[in-house]
Design a protein around this nucleic acid. Sequence first.
DNA 1: CCCTCGTACTCTGCATACACAGCACGAGGG
DNA 2: CCCTCGTGCTGTGTATGCAGAGTACGAGGG
Lengths: 226, 226
Amino acid sequence: MRASERAYQLLRDEIVRWELQPGAALAELDLAERLTMSRTPVREALARLVADGLAVPVGGRGLEVAPMDLDRARELYEVRQSLEVQAVRLAARRGDRDVFRRLADDFLAAGAAVGAAVAPADRSAYYALVGRFDDAVDDAVANRYLVTTMGSVRTHLARVRRLAQDNPARLVAAAQEHRTIAAAVADGDGDLAAHATHVHLHHSLENVLASMTLPTSTPTALRRPA
Amino acid sequence: MRASERAYQLLRDEIVRWELQPGAALAELDLAERLTMSRTPVREALARLVADGLAVPVGGRGLEVAPMDLDRARELYEVRQSLEVQAVRLAARRGDRDVFRRLADDFLAAGAAVGAAVAPADRSAYYALVGRFDDAVDDAVANRYLVTTMGSVRTHLARVRRLAQDNPARLVAAAQEHRTIAAAVADGDGDLAAHATHVHLHHSLENVLASMTLPTSTPTALRRPA
DNA sequence: CCCTCGTACTCTGCATACACAGCACGAGGG
DNA sequence: CCCTCGTGCTGTGTATGCAGAGTACGAGGG
């Protein structure tokens, strides 16, 4: 793989996982040394991060990891809502009914699974299912710009997720909401899919904000990995 | 100004103005020679263009100007609709009533101006007014991600505009539509603003598609500037 | 005449070297 | 003791050199 690509993926991953926290300096020389490559590919990687909005120039001198906080999470959800509501509406019009019917069934089963067991395996299986749903929507909308834009939002969203722990109850509810959306898309009911997505994202944001304002537990994101 | 910034702005401008047409090769060495700089800043500019979606890698070998056609214009408008409908809805909730009231009045006057005269001066004055409206919306929504994303869409949209000539009749109608939107935002009527935006963009796209399928006149974009 | 293999060229990807700007620290003067 | 100026350092911005990959073109064989 190209060195610049490695650098980009690694840094993006570290930022999304909060291993590089907001405000952390991104100096070319340091990174080049750490990644055992020259400044040139590091430079290209940093340029891409800036374009993604994951890095920001700091007062004329160098870059740092872009901020992410409660306010920005709210703003991000406003963009996410507009895009995903449009996406499911288009998917209901253009998508393959069978694909979304199967997804609806899978969400029903997944909801039962995460409700019965608390094993983290079920959790990651559920997230994988959500990923498949997103892919199915991307495929169904058949819109390059919309898919690209939603991809960008998802990157930032991955950062937000590290701020908020999904509790089991929320997962059960989310699975039910997803099932409703998938079923509506399968039925070609764009309005229902759109409104169900609106409701889903409302609850999702509510959950994020609730776990962020909870002072009891330090978010996973703020603990350094071993 | 930094050389890489000059290169980026120049190339972006040339692509948007169709002076560099879709499929045109973007070779580092050629561009470096043409812009009288080394390959390094050109490289950075090209990386930014790829991130913008204005340049695409071609089969393992180099870059070329990204395609733009009727289908893509339709897709772009689907994204634009979702974002701008959300934007005016938020603007209606958060914006300064007086600002949008004044804009509504200006659109009324501009509609009369472009209706009465066919001078290109009025046309560019109208576009400047639309720019002020966009800025006012950006300011009112107070959402970094939404503003950034709409900015990206506007760049691609500028390319589309070169495909479609706005005729005077369309400009008069557009001014009226904009006036309705601005007035709705000023009144804090988010639903009306959203629906009026939906209608406006529908007509705007209709106009684009109509002038692109018209075989009579070669689009301005395809004629080389003197 | 066509197909295939080889060679040379061109272009990208990466490394390194150099120039310039901003900042911090220290020394000197008030 | 504080303020100011100067110098050195650190880090970005740009230029250039080098290596590898892919392609195109030509020559030779079938």
